[in-house]
Design a protein around this nucleic acid. Structure first.
Lengths: 188, 188
DNA sequence: GACAGCCTACCTACTGGTAGGTAGATTGGG
DNA sequence: CCCAATCTACCTACCAGTAGGTAGGCTGTC
């Protein structure tokens, strides 16, 4: 992995543990064992770094969701594979969803970063809406109204659950995800 | 309103628009037309201010939820009155839930502030679980499993919806809340 | 094959600005 | 007179970003 990718990886980690404005080029430099100015060489300003981060996440999500589609046909299996990504974040113990981390600072961020975050989340919601619509079409998932709305609810609840879970523990996270699952199974 | 309460009110506003570490004593001083040092007189450190903020929100929520209980008997009316509080935040255009704002910075905050936030959200969830259990008991609300879990889902989804809504607009917020309502009505 | 010129990747040292916080003087009402 | 509240003036630490320089690899030309 070249230096630029290393910086991006480290920045992604710091974003999800500390938030965007609360990590500095100095933090990155210390973690990577190089000087602050060297990071400015790769990412001239923090806005550039932020934009690169949103692109990084968008690419990663695109690849991940495409891989899920290749590996699974069944809507429930696809949904569970998607939920695994959130569970992975939760397992780290001190991370939250990258989208949520950015959104919490919406009023402080350059517009281009906000647009990148919106594009990222729109992509995820759109994929999820497809899975949910398919599941309902097959009669194995149950929810009212539009699939896009159920996808919005699911994403919002997962973001909230990751934040709540980081502060208050796994039971709370599991409660939210379990309730989402139970609702879709039509147990309501 | 005395100065201390004014500071707290202004800090609450800045917390919900900018987050805790992204507002400064300087910001507060400018908004209030006084000097930075005068705020240190009322709140010696930012940790003190943060703790006072969590207590402020806890008091406010306790009073608000008690008022809802006095004004409404019907579970659906109580729930709608609760949702109005979130809608009020959304209407401001640039605010999110105070709990969410604090949680997004969990790894940066003093422990006492985190505990205050957890206590605040636990109180809200507990009240909400009561309303939901009552609604299901009367046969007018429908959801699977424990009422406490449905309350956790509801709070997480609302937090997420406020964050998503601030970045991407009202339709997204409305989609999430509408979906929560539809689920409870048993349309799934 | 030698060497001039350029490029990448990093460095040290600095700037202006802002953060939280403190010491001590001043002011004004009971 | 007292003392609560506010002030001026300062501190140290950190922020993003810049200036200017260096070591070493690549490339094109004679």
């Amino acid at each position: 992995m070249d230096r630029k990718a290393q910086i991006l990886q480290t920045a992604a980690d710091l974003l999800q543990t500390r938030s965007f404005s609360a990590f500095s080029y100095q933090h990155l430099a210390e973690r990577l064992g190089i000087r602050k100015a060297s990071i400015h060489y790769h990412f001239p300003t923090k806005e550039h770094l932020g934009e690169a981060l949103t692109q990084h996440y968008l690419d990663a999500y695109r690849a991940h969701l495409a891989a899920i589609d290749r590996q699974h046909r069944d809507p429930w299996e696809r949904l569970e594979a998607f939920l695994d990504a959130a569970a992975e974040i939760r397992r780290s113990g001190d991370k939250i969803c990258a989208g949520g981390a950015f959104q919490a600072e919406h009023n402080l961020l350059p517009q281009r970063i906000c647009e990148g975050v919106a594009a990222l989340l729109a992509h995820v919601r759109s994929w999820l809406a497809g899975v949910l619509a398919e599941g309902r079409g097959q009669g194995v998932m149950h929810f009212p109204g539009q699939a896009a709305h159920q996808a919005a609810l699911t994403v919002a609840a997962l973001q909230g659950a990751l934040q709540n879970g980081r502060c208050e523990g796994d039971e709370l996270y599991e409660a939210v995800v379990g309730q989402l699952r139970a609702g879709l199974r039509g147990e309501g």
